[in-house]
Amino acid sequence: MLKNRVKELRARYGFTQSDLGKRVDVTRQTIAFIEKGEFSPSITLALKLADALETKVDDLFWLEEEEYNEK
């Protein structure tokens, strides 16, 4: 499962889900789905999110350890 720090970094920058959504051109709901891990974003959106949160994609998203090691 894809894990992420979107919620943590968003809070650090004081963005609401709507703010971040506007910055990366998606709806607030999509940000919420990503934060919950319900939906894995495309590479394009992951890059946009990393850019908006001033971090690297692999600091923002990573595969859960167990699943990653099994493969």
Binding site: V26, F33, L45
Partner: peptide, 9 residues
């Protein structure tokens, strides 16, 4: 379908 999250749902 306004973005990829909505399209997924």
């Amino acid at each position: 379908e306004q973005d990829e999250g909505m399209t997924y749902i």
